[in-house]
Design a protein around this nucleic acid. Structure first.
Lengths: 193, 193
DNA sequence: TAATATATCGAACAAATTGTTCGAAAAATT
DNA sequence: AATTTTTCGAACAATTTGTTCGATATATTA
């Protein structure tokens, strides 16, 4: 990582915190510049404009969430446990980025419809593929009996998203994991051979 | 409370939340108006300007903190327990208004030096008087041996403020109360007859 | 009901804010 | 020493936003 990339990283890190607290519109370039310890105009040496920084922050966040989820799935041995790992890891990661998540998907989603929508859509598709691949693996190894994996993963994702609100308001992670366990107990007995 | 006062109260309540989150400068009149469900210009029927709302919010907060502290002192039977009640109640109240407290006394204290300084000064004086009166009561009832109550209360207040940072960063209220207990154990044995 | 007072808001404006550009000056590299 | 890379102050343009004002709606009073 060369010098420019390091500086970019620094700016991105402070921008992440400030955006998380204030959102896109209420964050000023000078806020970021001051926090990063550089002049306001220097920011434009690294990024095209404010939205460019915001986009980079969001993309970094999304990528980190993806990586965490993938890692926890890979660490799980069986398809059943992979599914559980996916749900729990997703839940935890979302809680970690809850602040910026609120700004992106609630406060200001109207103004920046286009590219936020695209990021969201891409992310949703990636999750769908992930779940579908877990299900396929389960079918191949003979533990799941599913006719249409992509349909099943769609249903699973819809279910998870339906629980999002409940998870967002709860503070007891252990209880959430227990609830997830219960959910999957029912789900597994519906699809297991 | 008449209609105007009720509306003022509503505006003040939403303004409190928004100021707590964004601070004075980053809060827009329209944010408050939208949250209160009124037109932007209607706000000016109730308040002179933005700072007027901010000042009212701060004053309300300060007053509520004062009331809580006074109530808990009155509920305590002995001077020793009144002192303890003061410290613990103050600590808890400050934690409750921590968000707005940060904005008022950290982020923007330079811009609005004059009246924030005055509010702070008045509040400090009130606390000083409160502690002094508790000490006086203790002296009169013969449980405290103090030459100069106002000097002693000044020292106590300085001590409490010195602990503020530690309290602000800690999340374990029970531990904080235990620490306070220890502090007062020492203090009491120094001043008790 | 008519008349008066109270309450609300849209539109417009002035002032301030702030994202962005640009050229010059450091700092680093060749 | 020359050239390239990096940084930033100052200025500008565009936007934002606090505030005003007159008109309209709603409530009150006579």
């Amino acid at each position: 990582m060369n010098k420019v990339e390091i500086k970019k990283e620094i700016v991105l890190n402070v921008a992440q915190d400030i955006f998380a607290q204030y959102g896109l519109t209420k964050t000023m370039i000078d806020d970021i510049a001051k926090a990063a310890g550089v002049g306001k105009s220097s920011i434009y040496y690294y990024f095209k404009n404010k939205e460019d920084i915001f986009r980079a922050v969001i993309e970094t966040q999304v990528q980190k969430v993806q990586e965490k989820i993938r890692a926890s799935i890979n660490a799980a041995p069986t398809p059943q446990e992979k599914l559980k790992a996916f749900v729990i890891s997703r839940m935890k990661s979302f809680r970690e980025v809850a602040h910026i998540y609120n700004h992106v998907f609630k406060d200001e989603y109207l103004k920046h419809y286009e590219y936020i929508q695209k990021i969201r859509k891409d992310y949703d598709q990636m999750e769908l593929d992930l779940v579908a691949s877990i299900l396929s693996e389960g079918i191949n190894s003979g533990v799941f009996k599913i006719q249409d994996p992509s349909l099943a993963s769609f249903v699973i994702m819809v279910g998870i998203k339906g629980l999002e609100y409940e998870w967002a308001t709860s503070t007891d992670i252990q209880k959430m994991e227990q609830d997830t366990e219960k959910l999957f107990e029912i789900l597994f007995h519906g699809i297991m051979k």
